[in-house]
Amino acid sequence: MATFAFYILEFPAGGTGTAVSHTANELIAAGHQVIIYTARHCTDQYPKGYERLFQVVIVPTMDPDTDENLDFLCQHIRENHVAALVVVAMHFYRIKVIKQNTSCKIVYALHGCPFYEAKDFSLNWKHWYDRWLHNGMKETLPIYRNTIDAADRYVVLCEDYAKMLVRKMRLSKANAQKLRVVPNGIETTAVPSLNKEKIIIFVGRLSLADKRPMRMAEIWRLIYQRLPDWRFVIVGDGPEKENLEQYICQHHIERMVFAGFTNDTVSFYQKASIICLTSQYEGWPLCLAEGQAYGVVPIAFDCTAGIRDIISPSKENGVLVPSYNCKAFADKLYRMATDAKWLARMRENVVKKAKSYTMSRNSEGYRKVLEELISD
Rank of each mutant, 00 (worst) to 15 (best):
N195M: 08
R215D: 04
H251G: 03
R215Y: 10
K196E: 05
K196L: 07
V235K: 01
R221F: 05
E242N: 00
C249R: 15
I199M: 12
I223W: 08
A217E: 00
S193K: 12
I223G: 02
N243I: 00
V235R: 01
P228I: 14
D237V: 00
I199A: 04
I219V: 15
L244V: 07
Y224Q: 12
L194M: 08
Q246V: 11
R215L: 09
L206P: 10
I186F: 08
I199R: 04
R205L: 11
A190H: 06
N184R: 13
D229S: 14
H251P: 05
I201E: 03
R212N: 09
L227K: 06
V191R: 15
D237H: 04
S207V: 13
I186P: 04
K241L: 04
W220Y: 05
L222A: 12
E197L: 11
R221G: 03
K241A: 01
N184V: 11
K241M: 06
L222N: 09
I199K: 07
R231P: 02
Q250E: 14
E240G: 04
V181K: 13
E197K: 14
L222Y: 09
I201A: 02
N195G: 11
I234V: 14
P192I: 07
I219C: 04
A190N: 15
T189M: 12
E240W: 05
G185P: 13
S193F: 06
I219K: 02
I234R: 01
G185R: 02
L194Q: 12
I223N: 03
V203T: 10
L194K: 15
L208S: 11
D210E: 13
I201Y: 02
E245F: 04
W220C: 01
T188H: 12
P239A: 11
N243D: 00
A190P: 08
L208F: 15
V235N: 03
M216I: 13
V181G: 05
K196W: 08
S207C: 11
D237N: 13
T188L: 07
R231N: 12
K211H: 08
P192H: 11
R212M: 10
V181L: 11
W220K: 02
W230C: 01
N184S: 09
G204Y: 10
P239Q: 05
G238Y: 00
F232V: 06
V181D: 06
D229N: 13
S207N: 09
V182F: 10
P192N: 08
C249A: 15
P213D: 00
T188F: 10
L208M: 13
V235E: 02
E245W: 04
V191F: 14
E187P: 09
E245P: 01
I248Q: 03
K198N: 15
L208N: 15
A190Y: 06
F202K: 06
S193H: 14
E245R: 15
T188R: 07
A209T: 11
R231C: 09
E218V: 06
M214R: 11
A209Y: 03
G185T: 10
I248R: 02
F202E: 03
N195L: 07
D210R: 08
H251S: 00
R231F: 13
T189S: 10
M214A: 01
Y247S: 03
W230K: 02
N184F: 10
S207W: 06
V181H: 12
L208P: 01
L222T: 08
K211Q: 08
E242H: 03
I248E: 02
K196D: 04
S207T: 15
R231V: 05
C249V: 08
N184M: 13
I223V: 13
I200C: 08
